[in-house]
Nucleic acid binder design. Structure first.
Lengths: 275, 275
DNA sequence: CAGTGGTCTAGACCACCAA
DNA sequence: TGGTGGTCTAGACCACTGC
């Protein structure tokens, strides 16, 4: 072991760019006083993780891109490769990046086969499904109601875009989805663009609006089909349906979508794995 | 397991106890030809993980126990501490063990506050719940139907134990659960024992039968209340209910419980987080 | 205080991939 | 062949816990 830069350099070596949690002065980059980002101080690899996260947010690397190698990042942040590795490990376990041996580390995207439909948990009782057919019913500008505004972190009356679509599985209408999107980041979204797109809607959002959904919360209930719903899903009035209210978030827990799904569950089920 | 059956005690100590993936002869333990366990060869830390897993299965350390320190395990398996650490890291992320700085690594248990009710996703729409009140309705021996047998990896007609209980939240009956358990491991389970127990049922199973549930799959549907259900849950006939079919597994993906829950979701919802 | 897990480093070798 | 991530080791120091 030679010339250990960080800990005790031979003499008064310069301060490393990223600060450790020890008794030295509090002058880490990116988390210094004023930014109010991370609370107090965190391990080096956490700081590195946050720095990489910021680059992802700011679009320095876009979905599908390779990010710099561990060696490069280590040089850039002046830490060891092992520390960068641990930071990237956490990003990978958060599904924000994907590692590929021999090739590099890639920014995760909903356009990937493996990640595609990551958020759609409805499965056929039988076995595998063909991809669903989609029909956009409606796409229009609205003013946010109090509920929608609260969940999207907007103010009541702020512009939102409303989308209604029906997904059919094995030819039968199975899912009705009402979607609310904040007007600003999705400015220009049209029924035509939505309809003509193939592939997952979230991949479309990445490509066209630079909005990447990172995680989501769902609240699930059983409800009875109203007359409208029964008509759209070709089911008797009063038929039990699964109601799935989803809030989707980009980086930094910023809500970017509100979605209410109504699922027919006579031939399908919502699959969940508990760990 | 006595006296570390693991590898060579200390006589012909040349070979490391666990084999690496390199050009040496292929004589790793636990993955040798014939066991058919892990396919071909895996990294050292995976082998260590499997060895620790086996000790957990065999009850060398019981839920709530401390397992040996990383240093001790490293010595026992004749690998570096870093390799043991990586093995334990994976076990911790699988929720099989819990690390506590300064104290040690503990076998996870459903009796822990933090892990308690890990599998119960039903929440009040308002906010936090008081713990549910429980009433065991029924507990009897049965013969497994074809369906139950298949899901529990038994044969039709094998003995199973059937339990029915109702959970009330804020005083209102909210959950009806039918539970099927394999007869052999749960031999002697009685309504009295179940009723007199406080605390999570899964903690009771650990303590009384040495059966630890490690993960579970759920299939969720919306159904209409039948007359029986309506009576038990004090709800109109035909009222939509959430049906949650759960299969719970111990170590090694062995199914150990089948549970069908029916949830009232007028005041509560099933919460799920998508990553 | 001693012992535990947590962080950080440095360097070696491997498996995989693309050119 | 060179570059990437994957594994493994060894050693240092830290923060936390309990005696």
């Amino acid at each position: 072991m030679i010339a250990n830069t960080i800990m005790n350099p031979s003499s008064t070596d310069v301060q490393p760019s990223v600060q450790n949690n020890t008794s030295s002065t509090t002058t880490a980059l990116g988390t210094g006083p004023g930014t109010g980002a991370t609370p107090a101080f965190s391990p080096l690899y956490q700081q590195i993780k946050n720095l990489i996260l910021r680059s992802l947010e700011e679009g320095e690397w876009k979905p599908g891109d390779v990010i710099p190698s561990e060696q490069d990042l280590a040089a850039r942040f002046k830490v060891s490769q092992g520390t960068v590795r641990k930071a990237i490990d956490e990003l990978a376990s958060d599904n924000l990046v994907v590692r590929r041996q021999g090739k590099g580390t890639y920014v995760a995207t909903h356009a990937e086969r493996h990640i595609q439909y990551r958020f759609l948990r409805l499965q056929s009782d039988a076995g595998e499904d063909d991809p669903a057919q989609r029909a956009i019913i409606e796409c229009k500008r609205q003013r946010a109601s109090a509920d929608v505004a609260r969940l999207l972190a907007l103010r009541s009356g702020d512009p939102v875009i409303f989308v209604r679509r029906v997904l059919s599985m094995q030819g039968a209408p199975t899912i009705l989805e009402d979607i609310w999107l904040p007007g600003l980041p999705f400015k220009g979204l049209s029924l035509e663009a939505l309809s003509s797109d193939r592939g997952p809607m979230y991949a479309f959002f990445e490509r066209e609006f630079g909005v990447r959904m990172v995680r989501a919360d769902e609240k699930i209930k059983a409800v009875a089909a109203t007359e409208d719903l029964a008509h759209l899903l070709v089911t008797p009035i009063g038929h039990p349906l699964l109601s799935v209210e989803r809030t989707s978030y980009t980086y930094n827990d910023v809500p970017m979508e509100l979605r209410r799904g109504l699922y027919r569950t006579d031939t399908h089920h919502y699959k969940n794995e508990l760990n």
